[in-house]
Computed example of a mutant assay.
Amino acid sequence: MTGRTTEQHMEHGKQGDAALIALDWGTTSLRAYLFDAAGKVLDTRVSTAGIMNLPVPAEEGGFDAAFEEACGMWLAAAPSLPVLAAGMVGSAQGWVQAPYVETPAGEDALVAGIVKVRAASGANIAVVPGVLEPGALPNVMRGEETQIFGALGAQEERETALIGLPGTHAKWVVVEGARIARFYTFMTGEVYAALKAHTILGRTMKHPAAPDTAAFLRGVMVAREHGSAGLLATAFSTRTLGLTDQLAADEQPDYLSGLVIGHELAGLEAVLARRDVALAACAPQLIGADALCERYRLALAQFGCTAAQIVREATERGLWRIAVRAGLVGAAV
């Protein structure tokens, strides 16, 4: 399957002002940014050529082909542009493996762990490593670390920060002293999709015409108030409430979404409490798709956490910050 690249915008300046190419290269997509010397995005290109969806197999030059398709026009105009990449492109299945750095991990550790790969075009790509939290139950991230440092922005002076990244594998990250101290991964999105598509719960569901916030919040509250036995116990209520005419078929998908997110937040609340931190007293920063982050913001409010904020352009800011720290570009004046 061929990765198709499309130009998104060229709003902030001219390509002749370009200073950096930065890539957010994940499993299913590639997003390329062209920055000017002030750290502003000049142009963006998006491709479906994630590492598992290259134009041709990796052993036949798939990474080179995807890179050329996304960035060839920019490099043709300015062949000496530095290139930085983050995400699954640095995994064992990526273009080059950038080994994890261990927590606590700051920007300097990420820069020290950068691994370079040379493209067929001659461009040298600096690949950002992921982060490993070692232990009896190790935890890893790759790509999120860049977004986290982008979200910190002017918040570095804060002693601690709680950052949430909703998605297929949701992550909650505790930052201390501008370093990733520890983090928790919840397979919320993947479990929701599996329950909906591959269990009996999906048999009675009907896709709603529009998101049902009331049904979603009902699920969140069930997880919070009746979830002590865990998701394996409460998930079946999606079916039984339907069978007893207490939950309409088109309410069930949002109810189940609320359940799984509610259990995630209950788990987060519990692990924070072990360190004498109250979730309700936190002001989390949320990174991700606006609609999903808004769902999390509503769900967090049910746990008494009303100060959550959605952070936008965290990826762009994080890529630029790491590029500056790595000396690929000068700091914006």
Rank of each mutant, 00 (worst) to 15 (best):
T27R: 08
D17E: 14
P253V: 09
A323I: 14
E145T: 06
M187D: 09
P99C: 01
E269K: 12
I125C: 05
G122C: 05
K116R: 14
A66D: 13
E159N: 03
G153Q: 07
L84H: 03
I51L: 11
P57G: 09
D290P: 10
G90R: 08
G202R: 00
V140M: 07
L34S: 03
L54M: 04
Y100D: 01
V173C: 10
V96D: 09
G143D: 14
L162R: 04
A209S: 14
I200R: 00
A161T: 09
A126R: 04
A85C: 10
E294C: 09
M73Y: 12
T199W: 00
R297Y: 05
E225W: 08
V140K: 04
A66Y: 02
M10Q: 15
W74C: 06
A280P: 09
G26W: 07
L23I: 08
L81P: 01
M73T: 15
Q302G: 11
G330D: 14
V131P: 02
V140A: 00
V174L: 13
R203C: 00
S47T: 09
S29G: 12
S91P: 04
G202Y: 01
A307C: 05
V311S: 13
P99A: 03
Q252H: 00
E156F: 09
G288R: 01
I148R: 04
F63R: 01
R182A: 12
L152H: 02
H169T: 06
G113C: 01
A314M: 11
L319Y: 07
Q155M: 12
A235F: 00
R312M: 14
I163E: 02
E251M: 12
A332M: 07
